[in-house]
Structures are given as C-alpha cells and as structure tokens.
C-alpha cells in the first residue's frame, strides 16, 4: 500500500485546515472506509489523505507550548509585546 512516508510534507490544503476541520474530515474518511463501499482506488486515496490528516492533527496537538506575553503600547499607540511580568 502506498502509505505516505512519515517525512513527506503535508500538502498545503491540509496544513491550512484548523484542528477541528482536520479532525472532522478524518472522522468522515474513517466512516467512509469502514463502510467499505468505496472503489478500491478511492479507498486507497482516502486512506492516504486520512494518514496526512492524522499527522496534521497530531502536529497541531504537539504544538503545545505556553508562551505568555503582555501587551505594551508603544508611544505611537501600536501594540507590542514583552514577556509577561506578574504585577
């Protein structure tokens, strides 16, 4: 089976998806493949896309870093950030 290599880049259309959209499409694909009515070619294509969606979802979830900043207004009124200081 032509499983996408784990290192292959995620296509732009998938990378642009929000987490919830990617998850929703992944669920739809799984249901479609589970029903088993799709043509073999379609099923394989759906599987490949499902694998990419799953990687995209996981990537979104792995990107979980806390970064706390605080807004500071510059003299011209534009917003800038600086590290958050408590108090």
């Amino acid at each position: 089976m032509a499983t996408p290599a784990p290192t292959s880049p995620i296509p732009a259309d998938i990378a642009a998806l929000s987490f919830e959209d990617a998850l929703a499409e992944l669920e739809r694909i799984v249901r479609q493949v589970e029903e088993g009515r799709a043509k073999l070619d379609d099923a394989i294509a759906a599987y490949e896309r499902g694998v990419l969606l799953k990687r995209h979802c996981e990537a979104k979830l792995k990107d979980a870093q806390a970064r706390i900043e605080q807004i500071a207004l510059a003299s011209d009124g534009s917003a800038q950030t600086r590290p958050f200081s408590d108090g």
């Binding site: 669920e27 493949v33 599987y47 996981e58």
Partner: peptide, 22 residues
C-alpha cells in the same frame, strides 16, 4: 490536549485497521 491526542490516535487506528481489513 491528552483527550484530543487519544481521540486522534483512536481514529487513526480505526483508519489503519479498516484500510487493512478492506
């Protein structure tokens, strides 16, 4: 986050299993 990761893995597992079974 942990709930979502588990969900993604569960769905991914179903994808693999059903694709193989198919």
């Amino acid at each position: 986050r942990a709930d979502l990761l588990a969900r993604v893995r569960e769905i991914g597992g179903r994808l693999d299993a059903t694709a193989m079974r198919g």
